[in-house]
Write a protein that binds this DNA or RNA. Sequence first.
DNA 1: GTGCTTGTTGGCCA
DNA 2: GTGGCCAACAAGCA
Length: 276
Amino acid sequence: MPELAEAEFYRKRWDLAARGAVVTGVLMHDHAKVFRGTDPAVVRRHLTQARFLDSQAAAKQILFRFSGDSWLGVHLGMSGELRVEAPGYIPQKHDHLALVMAGHTLVFTDPRMFGRVQFHHDPTAPTWWTDIAPALNSPAFTPEALAAFLARRARAPLKAVLLMQERFPGIGNWMADEILWRAGLHPKRLAGSLSPAEVRTLRRECRHVARLALTTIAGKGDTLPPDLNAHIPQTWLFWHRWEKDGRCPKTHTPLAREDVGGRTTCWCPARQKLHP
DNA sequence: GTGCTTGTTGGCCA
DNA sequence: GTGGCCAACAAGCA
């Protein structure tokens, strides 16, 4: 599942297993909704006999580059996963795309089909990739840019604002809650109500959580944890946010859970005050 | 059966 | 035109 760090985890899983390998067969569920806007026949034609050159992850998206100017984009949606199976693997009901290679079969699976596969055949990168907002840890995520964005969304709750991909690429429901929890900001605070010091805190925690999530979930260098959440410490809100009677790892007081910005939101009332 | 779920989009309304 | 809210999409799980 699919926020910033999970996209990187799955990118590495395919990349470490098969970068440099040649695709000998492409198996697709041609009519699956994940191919909306993409012609499966074109994907099949260009990827067959193409070599997997390299890959990148940005926001919640993954880009795989193949020889012959082919670009394969994957958005994992709500329930998408990338797996590595044996060469003779037979795709199952929810395995919408499988790239067969000599040593492995790379599988994209997604039961709910909120995910998406995109394809581009051209020497230059596709706009659906280049248009992704600059990363939270890039120089472009300046205090001024953040303040301006909060001002423009002044009437929206912080939680809803953090989910806006145009400024917070890769932040999803649990990362947004993790950021606000660390920053000590109530998810229902209106974006326009923050003091300059609170804006600085929010920016710091956005960058901190993004960086920490990447190394914790997707590993450093060429290492990859055995499971998605294998290395997430108990000190994160992550493990407690869905628990019945969950408690804050910092204060050990009961957590609150409520719909904010249309999503189930978890916070610690003891340290995230609506009226500070 | 009910009521959730790590996401995005288009339509409606102010 | 802009911003905010919400239903819809689909399948599985408790």
